[in-house]
Design a protein around this nucleic acid. Structure first.
Lengths: 215, 215
DNA sequence: CGGCAAACGGAATGACATTCCGTATTGTAA
DNA sequence: TTACAATACGGAATGTCATTCCGTTTGCCG
C-alpha cells in the first residue's frame, strides 16, 4: 500500500557464456553487446566501492557517476535499486567462495581455514546494512539466503573438513554452526565497533584448535 | 554522506504528569497545552494502527491524515520520522509491560505467564520492520534495546519467577534466555509465515512445564 | 475580554527512485 | 566499407516522500 514499484524481472550476468556451440540449429541467442557487458562490470565494481564508503543506502545517482554511466543505464541492467544491491552481494559471495579454492591450494589445512574465515569476516563486515536489507522484506533479496547456503557453505565445508581430517582442529563441532555463528557475530545488533567482529572470530578460530587430535 | 537530516532533539510524552504539586516555589514549568497533548495521543494511536496495516515504512503524510492533523504537527512532536516510530514502540512496550501486572493479579502464576508470553508475541509479531529499524543504525533507535531491558525484562521476570516459585514450571532455565529466545523467534529472518511464531512460543511454554516440581 | 506564547496546517523545498524518449553504438549483412 | 536495425545510452522529467518554513489559529493567564 505504500510500496515502491513492484513487478520485478531479474537480470542475469551473461559474462562467462562460453557456451557458444555454434553448430546445430538453435536460435542465434542474441549475444550481449560488448559495451553493455563493460558497463555492467563497471557498475558492479562501482557499486561495491560506493557501498563500502557510503553504505547500501547510497543514491543510485552516486553509483552511476562512479561508474561513469547514466542512471538510465543502471536501470537498464537492474530494474530496481534492490536488484543492484543483491547482485553486488551475490558477486561478493562468489569471490569469497572462490577464494576458498586458492587458500586450499596454497596453505596447509588449518591456515587455509583461518585465512578464509577472516576473508569471510571482511566480506560481511563491509556490509553495513546487509542485515537491514535482509529483513526489509524486499523480494529482490529473497534468494540471497539460499545463495549463501549454495555458495559459501560448501566452500567453508571443504576447508573445515580438510582441517578436521588433518587433525588440526577438533572434530566435535558442527561446521554449519560455526559459519552461522560467524555471520551472526558480524551482523548482530550488538556489534561493538570496528575490530569487534574480527576479534570474536579470531577467538572462535583459536577455540577450534583446542583439543585437536594429532594427524 | 548520503544521510537524511541529522541532529535530533528528543520529545517526551508529558501525559501522566500528575506531579503538579502546586505548593513550593519551583519554576511554573510551562504546562503542556491541552490540544497539544490531545494531538500527541491521536498521533501515537494513528501511527500504531497505520504501522500495522502499512508497515513502519508508511509515509508521515498518511499518519498525519489518520490522526486528523497536519504534517507540521507531526514534526512539532517528533523531529524525525524515526522518533515517531521509536515512540510508538516504546508506548507498546509499556502497554505490554503493564499487562503483566493485570495477568498476575487475575490468573494463577503459570496461566499469567503463558498469557503474557502470547501477548508479548503479539506485540513483536505486528512489528514488521522492527528488526530492520533496529539494524538501520538510526540513532533514534539507540535507546530502544535499553528500554526493552528496562521495561519488558522485569515484567517478564516477575511472572516467570512467580511461576517457578509456585512450582508450575521447571526451575532449571534462565529467564533472560527465554525472553531473548522468544524475541528472536519472532524477528528471525527465517520466520515462516503467520502463526509460526505463536507455534514456536507455545512449544516453548510447554517445554517450561516439563519437569516442574510440585508446589 | 486581551495579549501572546505555543501549536497548527499545509505549501514549499530538497533528495531520491524510477520512467521516458531522443540520441549514440554496435554488430552485421550487403 | 557503408547502411541499417537492434541495442544501449544519458539525462531530463516525474512522482513520492521527508523535512522545513511561516503566516494563522488557539489555549491560557491575568
Amino acid at each position: 500500500m505504500y510500496l515502491r514499484g513492484r513487478d520485478r524481472s531479474p537480470v542475469i550476468d551473461k559474462s562467462d557464456s562460453q557456451n557458444s556451440m555454434l553448430a546445430a540449429g538453435d536460435k542465434p541467442e542474441r549475444r550481449v553487446r560488448a559495451d553493455a557487458q563493460r558497463n555492467l562490470d563497471a557498475l558492479l565494481e562501482a557499486a561495491k566501492s560506493v557501498f563500502v564508503t557510503a553504505g547500501v543506502g547510497a543514491p543510485v545517482r552516486a553509483i552511476a557517476e562512479q561508474a561513469g554511466v547514466g542512471v538510465g543505464t543502471v536501470y537498464r541492467h537492474f530494474p530496481q535499486r534492490a536488484d543492484l544491491i543483491a547482485a553486488v552481494f551475490r558477486r561478493e559471495m562468489d569471490a569469497c567462495a572462490d577464494a576458498a579454492a586458492v587458500f586450499a591450494a596454497t596453505q596447509p589445512p588449518f591456515e587455509a581455514l583461518a585465512s578464509w574465515m577472516q576473508r569471510f569476516t571482511g566480506f560481511i563486515a563491509t556490509k553495513r546494512g546487509l542485515a537491514s536489507a535482509l529483513h526489509s522484506g524486499d523480494p529482490a533479496f529473497d534468494g540471497l539466503i539460499g545463495y549463501f547456503d549454495r555458495r559459501l557453505r560448501p566452500a567453508f565445508r571443504g576447508l573445515f573438513d580438510a582441517a578436521v581430517a588433518a587433525g588440526q582442529i577438533r572434530a566435535d563441532v558442527d561446521g554449519d554452526e560455526i559459519l552461522g555463528a560467524v555471520a551472526s557475530l558480524c551482523m548482530s545488533v550488538y556489534n561493538d565497533g570496528p575490530g569487534h567482529a574480527e576479534r570474536m572470530v579470531a577467538l572462535l578460530i583459536d577455540g577450534l584448535r583446542h583439543g585437536a587430535r594429532a594427524p
